[in-house]
Design a protein around this nucleic acid. Structure first.
Lengths: 208, 208
DNA sequence: GGACAAACTTGCACCCACTGCAAACAATTA
DNA sequence: TAATTGTTTGCAGTGGGTGCAAGTTTGTCC
């Protein structure tokens, strides 16, 4: 009577979820992510609109179909990295992992193009990334032995994310350099400092 | 027959816009930004819902009521800063200007609290900030004499923004240090480098 | 000052993302 | 096999937002 992994119910749920995600991505690529409707996606996956929302809280989530393994892998990488590996180096590996989905042969993948072309997709990605960011920051602070509200871990995680985003935008505007070249340059700048001449304190005192 | 500044039409438009923005902020603070409806805001400002959308493309825009002068001041600062002032120092002054709205006596202002408490407000702010960011990046690249698609100007602007956001989040979670202290620490880290030991190249070669 | 044009407001119908509720249906358990 | 549990679905509704056209207000010209 009992089935192997999870039973018929569980298997059907996974199938439905996959069907919705597939349909969403396909139709978003065909029609544009802001043009395709939830009704079209649900119909293509052979479920009702109401059921769609049992699976995904927002239309964009179905299109993005973020793989929860990404965050898991990132947190795992954070925990198991060699002790001598510096924090930003770990973030570099994590970001490169994320880029697998967004880049292909130095160019934006179709999925990457899709995300960079739609404010609502970018929104949902950025919002959910904020949550990931908080978890990564907590894991990094723990690894660095710093208290939870420290500036440096939060800054490393958030600026690594900002660098990734900026690099993709730069590449979209002017695709003459591979994305990974741009990313390496950005990470090296972050590592060594983006402005050795920074100095509002001295200047401020001079003017007051 | 002619009136002074802009005529009756222009004056009424400004008044309506201000009334909508005032009502939006007041009601958002009273009821919560995600709870207040456009109908309530329009009614409080004595106009129709349809008219509301003649003024603001999204509900959040009315609540945020971003002052276009902020970007103008920032771009002006970028153009007129002393030649010897470094790029990140300029961004520091710009971010401190923005913080006037979000912080008061080292604590988050009510407006700052509002923004940090609502994903949809944060979204609209982040999205519109992306547009500002692009303009600031272009202005900074020009000032630095770098081509439009360069990594460093984009990185300076985007990481300054990320630092501002992160600092506010850190403060919200643990309000024991003034916001400006946190911000100064973040900017100094960015300036001098967040990770001197960064080195995936060396490590990568060692493992391959 | 009246006629006319331009600009703005408003009402209306509609679209679409999303939610709560309960009946119907399918899978699982006793 | 009947009872229980979990899932789907239909339905009504909310609220943000859009296009269109009629009504109203302001500005211009004679």
């Amino acid at each position: 009577m009992r089935h192997g992994e999870g039973g018929l119910r569980e298997r059907k749920k996974l199938q439905t979820r996959a069907a919705l995600a597939d349909a969403a991505l396909r139709l978003a690529l065909e029609k544009g992510p802001d043009q395709v409707t939830v009704e079209e996606i649900a119909e293509a996956a052979d479920v009702s609109v109401r059921t769609f929302f049992n699976y995904f809280p927002h239309k964009e989530y179905a299109i993005l179909a973020r793989n929860p393994e990404h965050l898991e892998r990132a947190l795992e990488r954070m925990r198991t990295a060699p002790a001598e590996e510096s924090p930003l180096t770990t973030m570099w590996f994590i970001v490169n992992d994320v880029l697998r989905d967004l880049e292909s042969d130095g160019q934006l993948s179709r999925r990457g193009e899709l995300i960079m072309s739609s404010p609502s997709l970018l929104y949902q990605l950025m919002l959910s990334s904020l949550d990931d960011e908080r978890q990564l920051t907590a894991a990094l602070a723990e690894r660095m032995g710093e208290p939870a509200g420290s500036v440096r871990p939060a800054l490393i995680v958030s600026t690594a994310g900002a660098a990734c985003r900026v690099v993709m935008e730069l590449h979209k505007s002017a695709p003459d350099r591979p994305i990974r070249d741009l990313l390496d340059e950005a990470f090296h700048l972050l590592a060594q400092g983006i402005d050795a001449a920074f100095g509002p304190d001295h200047q401020k005192k001079g003017t007051s």
